[in-house]
């Protein structure tokens, strides 16, 4: 009985140190981010300004450490690396689609080319950040605008012509699901 409670207590304390470590890590990352932003925005390196910036970023990081990085996991680094691979592809895709829209806009018979309609599709994305990323990526790619995106992964998209509607959800969904480690 005694040993059991001891074990439970030690487990509890180890979990407590683990959670403390995690929240300290997210506190530290928030602090670094805030202080870096302060340095870039102020552009002066007086001791007084550095001190004030350090104090205010410390206070913000102390009270709001769970806003930016809610539950710190080691998967963040992997996600970050995958996301930095995803971003250039997204920018290339945006460029390609922008020229398509540009062609439509300057076309003399524009009203025959466009065919606006709303399509609905369902995905299996679970986490909020994956859904938000997919919705923003769809909106950034010209020709398609996300109208609604619910938390069960149902997307409603307004597409301006048939060609840009056919590209959805397709390869972009696969890439986003790969970035956040979810199944399609």
């Amino acid at each position: 009985m005694n040993s059991l409670t001891k074990e439970v207590a030690s487990k509890k304390s180890s979990r407590r140190t683990a959670t403390f470590f995690k929240s300290f890590l997210s506190f530290f990352l928030t602090f670094i981010l805030m202080f870096g932003t302060w340095l870039v925005l102020s552009g002066k390196f007086d001791p007084l300004l550095l001190w004030l910036g350090g104090l205010s970023s410390f206070l913000i990081a102390f009270y709001f450490y769970d806003l930016l990085f809610p539950a710190f996991e080691s998967g963040y680094a992997v996600t970050f690396i995958r996301f930095s691979k995803y971003a250039p592809w997204l920018i290339y895709e945006i460029m390609k689609a922008n020229f398509h829209i540009l062609k439509i806009v300057f076309h003399p018979r524009m009203k025959e080319l466009i065919d606006p309609h709303i399509i609905t599709f369902k995905t299996n994305l679970k986490s909020d950040i994956a859904i938000t990323t997919l919705a923003n990526s769809i909106t950034l790619t010209p020709g398609t605008i996300t109208v609604t995106a619910t938390s069960d992964g149902v997307f409603k998209v307004h597409a301006i012509d048939r060609e840009s509607a056919e590209a959805l959800p397709g390869i972009m969904l696969e890439k986003v699901a790969h970035v956040f480690g979810e199944d399609v």
Binding site: V105, T139, I145
Partner: peptide, 20 residues
């Protein structure tokens, strides 16, 4: 700017306005 003027309705106007 041209797309905002030429497009026929509100939803399709958003395409050039928001992204170009």
């Amino acid at each position: 700017a041209v797309g905002i003027i030429r497009m026929p309705d509100f939803y399709s106007r958003l395409h050039p306005a928001g992204k170009l």
